[in-house]
């Protein structure tokens, strides 16, 4: 038990220090949000595994999944993670146009991923293997679709921040926003690793 002697009247944080602290708090808060998102994905994964054999006499992963397609998607997303990393380097160096260039490449790669994903799911749906066909397909579509929706949100976010960078240039605040977008983007690649490892590869096998 200590006696507390309080010294009041400490110098306040400068505004710059407060701004830095706010950025740090936002990064941490966003990380916590990603942890909660990880739980959501984990439960979708668990649901998928539980329902992986509930094909209701319908098509299974073995008939539906195609290895080259999945590999291509994986490469697109991994490349986009790398290019976002290159954008991060440019941001730290304050290079506005290089940042925009790499962000654009990231966007195109991500768009390619989403396009392939949509074409895959659409193809399955019109072939009678939509999410309404069986529990297995419901779980598959939802897990993969939720990931794809997250990536799509990320794409919108890239566009918004890209516009801000183009119009207002790089400053610590937009840099911090790009940092959080980076956390989001890399997190989604981590989820994708789990998707191809739990859903596609075992399904094809």
């Amino acid at each position: 038990m200590t006696d507390a002697v309080i010294t009041a009247g400490q110098d306040e944080d400068t505004e710059a220090e407060e701004a830095e602290r706010a950025i740090d708090e936002k990064a941490y808060g966003f990380w916590i949000y990603l942890m909660s998102d990880a739980i959501i994905f984990a439960l979708l994964f668990a649901t998928f595994v539980v329902m992986s054999h509930n094909t209701a006499d319908g098509p299974s992963g073995h008939t539906l999944f195609r290895l080259p397609h999945t590999f291509a998607e994986t490469m697109l997303l991994l490349a986009s993670s790398a290019t976002f990393g290159f954008a991060s380097v440019a941001i730290a160096a304050g290079q506005r146009w290089r940042t925009l260039a790499w962000l654009s490449v990231t966007f195109l790669l991500g768009l390619g991923f989403v396009a392939m994903k949509i074409s895959e799911l659409y193809g399955m749906a019109v072939a009678g293997a939509g999410p309404w066909r069986s529990g297995f397909l419901s779980a598959f579509f939802t897990l993969v679709g939720t990931h794809g929706a997250h990536v799509s949100v990320g794409l919108v976010w890239i566009v918004l921040l890209g516009c801000e960078v183009a119009l207002r240039g790089l400053n610590p605040f937009v840099a911090s926003r790009l940092c959080r977008l980076g956390l989001f983007w890399h997190f989604l690649d981590i989820v994708w690793i789990n998707i191809f490892s739990v859903v596609y590869l075992p399904g094809i096998l």
Partner: peptide, 20 residues
């Protein structure tokens, strides 16, 4: 999703798993 899009997470049949 079950109710709106006719999915089968928890339906009685078609591979639903109500206990989940």
């Amino acid at each position: 999703l079950d109710r709106y899009l006719g999915m089968h997470f928890f339906t009685d049949g078609d591979g639903g798993n109500m206990m989940n």
